[in-house]
């Protein structure tokens, strides 16, 4: 009886394994496609942003559930995110390219494997610094057969991000603190694209440590920013739908926890706290030009006589 049982279960197991191991579709050779023929699914909002900047909005056929572009998110199928993919929808959409963001070795192994079986080219963007945004545009241009559009986008973006290094024209001696998100605890340090944009706009980051850091009240008291920028996009579909209204969003930037406790900051005393709540405020995409404009616009508002003496920051 035991042997028969083994045989029965082995047959079931073999069927199961054959089923699990079989690719969903038969592999096919990669076909040459031109830019108009590409059909792109972007699982990274930054990738979508870059594609739109490159004039390839019409080629986007699917987005992530966390897409920042509300128009696209409402219009196009939501195919998952960088960790979870709706293969059924992906198969129905039949894209030529799938854009994801992150390190290749952090990507779940099944994504590239299944995409290869479905003849979808995976484009992995890795964006940390401003130069990575330019590199990502070039990478997208090469992958999507849109080199010219990529070159133009890079040139346009570089033209908009003009460094403001002249101390007379800018407020280079000003220290700025950039808070991100609506909890008011995460701040922008150095070695990232927001800091790069901040420096280009002519301000100095009040935080010297690299990366993105949690700021508590104690650490906050050791800083003395002359200006505080809050980048708090309200794009998550799980947040209150009322916040999709721009006016409501501006009223709901509640990055106050650290600000309330930091009444000694020059920025608070002079009421120089500015919030940007655009949906794409935190995307490492072509929208960094808008962030740059936002920084510059508010730094320009500060009268020259308010410039503190050099070295007044921490």
């Amino acid at each position: 009886m035991g042997q028969r049982l083994c045989v029965l279960l082995n047959i079931f197991l073999t069927l199961l394994i054959l089923g699990c191991d079989k690719p969903a579709q038969t592999p096919a050779t990669t076909q040459a496609v031109d830019a108009r023929a590409v059909r792109v699914v972007s699982l990274t909002p930054a990738g979508t942003n870059l594609l739109v900047a490159m004039g390839m909005k019409d080629q986007i056929v699917g987005v992530s559930a966390y897409e920042a572009d509300i128009q696209l998110r409402d219009k196009l199928p939501k195919v998952g995110d960088y960790q979870r993919i709706d293969w059924e929808q992906l198969s129905a959409i039949k894209p030529t390219h799938l854009i994801v963001q992150g390190l290749r070795d952090r990507l779940p192994a099944g994504i590239e494997e299944r995409c290869a079986a479905m003849n979808i080219q995976v484009v992995i963007l890795q964006i940390d610094r401003l130069k990575d945004i330019y590199a990502a545009i070039t990478q997208l241009g090469a992958a999507l057969h849109a080199d010219d559009a990529a070159k133009k986008t890079v040139t346009d973006l570089q033209a908009r991000l003009t460094p403001r290094t002249n101390p007379a024209a800018s407020n280079a001696s000003f220290t700025a603190l950039v808070l991100i998100g609506d909890e008011g605890k995460l701040v922008v340090g150095t070695d990232n694209y927001i800091n790069d944009v901040l420096e280009l706009s002519g301000a100095k980051n009040a935080v010297a440590a690299p990366g993105y850091l949690m700021l508590d009240v104690e650490k906050g008291r050791s800083l003395a920013p002359d200006v505080v920028f809050i980048l708090a996009p309200r794009t998550n579909p799980q947040t209150d739908p009322k916040l999709d209204n721009a006016a409501n969003r501006r009223n709901n930037v509640d990055a106050k926890s650290i600000l309330i406790a930091s009444d000694k900051w020059p920025a608070i005393k002079t009421d120089r706290v500015y919030a940007m709540t655009d949906a794409d405020a935190l995307l490492p995409g072509a929208n960094v030009a808008n962030v740059y404009d936002f920084f510059v616009r508010h730094l320009k508002q500060i009268p020259p006589q308010d410039n503190p003496p050099p070295g007044s920051g921490p």
Partner: peptide
């Protein structure tokens, strides 16, 4: 998990079997 590699899924299938 919809993004696990087929090798890992197959290994699990064998082990469970």
């Amino acid at each position: 998990q919809t993004t696990a590699s087929s090798a890992h899924v197959a290994a699990s299938a064998w082990m469970i079997g």
